[in-house]
Structure formats: structure tokens, C-alpha cells
Design a protein around this nucleic acid. Sequence first.
DNA 1: TACTTCATCTCGATC
DNA 2: GATCGAGGTGAAGTA
Lengths: 231, 231
Amino acid sequence: MRLVIAQCSVDYAGRLNAHLPLATRLLMLKADGSLLIHSDGGSYKPLNWMSPPCSLAEVSPEDDQTDAGITAIWKVTHAKTADELTVNLYEVIHDSAHELGIDPGLIKDGVESQLQKLLAEHIHLLGEGHTLVRREYMTAIGPVDILAQDASGKSVAVELKRRGDIDGVEQLTRYLELMNRDPHIAPVTGVFAAQEIKPQARKLAEDRGIRCLLLDYDAMRGLDDTLTRLF
Amino acid sequence: MRLVIAQCSVDYAGRLNAHLPLATRLLMLKADGSLLIHSDGGSYKPLNWMSPPCSLAEVSPEDDQTDAGITAIWKVTHAKTADELTVNLYEVIHDSAHELGIDPGLIKDGVESQLQKLLAEHIHLLGEGHTLVRREYMTAIGPVDILAQDASGKSVAVELKRRGDIDGVEQLTRYLELMNRDPHIAPVTGVFAAQEIKPQARKLAEDRGIRCLLLDYDAMRGLDDTLTRLF
DNA sequence: TACTTCATCTCGATC
DNA sequence: GATCGAGGTGAAGTA
């Protein structure tokens, strides 16, 4: 990895065009040829960048560019999409290179799939007397997250999202239409369950007779802890 | 901005829990207190990070941690969410600090908002005799990008995308269903306009009687230039 | 390899 | 501040 702190201006041409005026920035050149341009603020997203696979070529500045103070020009081109990033370097304040080696990578815990598992384990959260039929119940157009039965034995299809928006309601609607045409399983009611449900999604769901259910991940995990403590 | 290259292991606790095993990485400490941890590959997303507002505190390692080779511990805590990032530093290979100043920021060109503005200004691209009613026409389920009238005075709802795929057609379909239930504005026809329309989206749109319109951003901008030259 | 879905999404615009 | 939609989305899993 090569780290360069320099005054520079940058132009990007690809899906869109973008320009960075002259300022002091960090240029991070990774081992795979990719380049990130960071300022001293903002979040993790660089001001501009080029993703791998790409290649960097150093170009000699023209006379008028040299007169303008440009000491070097980097042209980074994407191997496939012809996107191009041009960095005009002025004063270079720091330049160092370091061998990092391959990273073992990030280990994650606590994401979406666990929500499904937790709801399946605590299916009573759907309401009194509900029982689990199965997770990932397969239909012709894809798997329903959870299929259950209510106290009267009627089928309940659950669509699960971390954040519930309109797309999820549309998806559940398609499942419900399909399943309600199948006399073996009809009638099927729908539950849209998420940690957070956007107002527009809630309105659409309720217009269509789909029940909305807010999930509390920590509370659900707490139920597990309670069980663990009990046994 | 402080740049540290060091052997380190990292733990994050917040929305999820995550762990990075011992390896050599770049730690980028920005002026606003935020921290990015980058490896020598991947894309622009760091392996782990803490977004501002947050604060870093250096903690003394316990004796057993010192024995294990830990020379310093950074605890970065988010000011609002109580997310926490712990970096255990082993061997430090590089450590430098640089004054970058405030960045003037990125100037973008060619995004959807400009497309909308351009199409509204050149509404005749929808067809002979079309007139603009308004941009961002509000409905109960969200704003229609452009509402126009055709030569006969009938309403035309335009959904605008840079890249047109099925989601956009679904969105426009919802608007059309809603608006066509309103006797004050019905009947409303639909136009799906984009710089690029995926074949599946085109088929779905045409099956539903929605007209597809390919937009040429450069040509539309050219129309502006022509006007500028004329006046 | 292409497609779908998720994300500690980020980021801006708007209410 | 909350919300909504777009992204040069990226990244991971699946068919």
C-alpha cells in the first residue's frame, strides 16, 4: 500500500462526471491497483475512487500544466468499464509504501438471517396460538420467509425484513396472490414483520389487508437468554 | 489526519458484533475523530470503521495484554449510539500526522435530478404538443417525477430513472393505479423514461401499456447549449 | 457468471 | 430531526 499526501485536483469520468478542485488530500494506492482519495472528514466513503480491476499510469504533464504547478499526473483506468480517474498532483507532502499482506477478513455476528431464526423459535410473537409450519416455504416464485398457522389453523405467510419498505410489501403480495390461488393452502393471510416499518410501506400493507408486526431484535434475543437461563 | 500502519486486532460492538484477527493494516484517524481501518485490497469500504461524531481514548493495556504483545489500545466510542470500536495495537510500523484542511468537496454532473430538470425544460421530448404540469407531483404514496399533459389534454405521468429496471416500472404502475382511481385526474397514461432501459423492464412496461422513452443526456444538455447560443 | 438481496449501507434533499 | 429515494452503491449468497 502506497500512501501519498499531496495537493491535487481530480477528475472522474464514468457513470457520471465529477471534479475535485485543488486541495490537500490523502491518496491511498492499494496493492490491487485501486485508488482511494480521502479528505480529512466525512465518513468512510472516499471523495473519489477507482475500484479494481484497474491500472494506474503516470503521465508526463504538458508544459502549460508544469507551469501551472502540476508535478505529476496519474491516470487510473478501469479494466472493463473504461471509467477513468485523472489525478493532477501538485506539491507532494508525504509518500510512503508499506507491505501489509493479505487480510484474514472480518467476522460478523448478529445479522438478518438470525432474525428469521429467532422469529421461528418464538412464533407466538405472531399472536396467540400460532404455530410454525416451516421457514423458507418454497413457492413457484420463491421462498416465503416463514409459513405459520393461526389458532384456527389458517395459513399465515410472513415476510421478514430488517427495514420494511414498499418492495417487501409487494413481494409478500405476490406470494399471497399465488398461494391464495392454491386450494390446498388457501386462504392465506399475510404478516409483514420488520425491525422498522416505513410509513408508506405500512399504509400499502394495511390497504391490502396485510398485518404489520414490529420486531425487537434485542428483546427476541433476550427471550433466548431467558430460556438459556431456565434450562 | 493521522496515518498508522500497525499490526492490530479489532472488535466492533454496535448494530452487530464484528472481529478482525491480528494482521497488518492501515488505521486512518481523521480530524473529526472518525477512524477507518483498511486492508491492502477490497474496495473503498474499510474492513471496519467508526463514523463521526465519535471520540478516541487511548487505554493502557493490562499486564496480560502487554505480555501478549499489545502495546496500546484505542477505544473509539460513538457520541450518540454507544457503538464501540476497540483496536489492540501490536507492532507499529508507521505513524505520521498531516494537516489537510477543509476539502472544497465534490462537484457532480449527470445525476437523476439533472435529468428531471432537463426533461421538464424540454417536455416536447415526450411527444408533439405535450405540456408540463409540474415536477414532483405529490400523491398519497409519493411524488410522481413529472406530470404532463399530451396534445389532447390527457394526463401523463413520467417516471424517470438513470437506469430503468423493473423496480421503476412497478413504482410507476402504483402511481398510475392510484391516479386512475381519482376521477379528477383520470385517465392517466404512463411514460417510463431513462438513459438506459433493461429489456425485462421494457417488456413489463409495454405489457402494462406504459410507453418507454430513452433519454440522451448529452443531447439534452446540447439542447440547452443551443438555446444559450441563440439568446 | 448473472441475478437477487442485504447493508454498522452513505448521502443528499425535503418535509 | 425524521424520512425518503438514489448510489460510480458494494458485498454476499444463490441459481
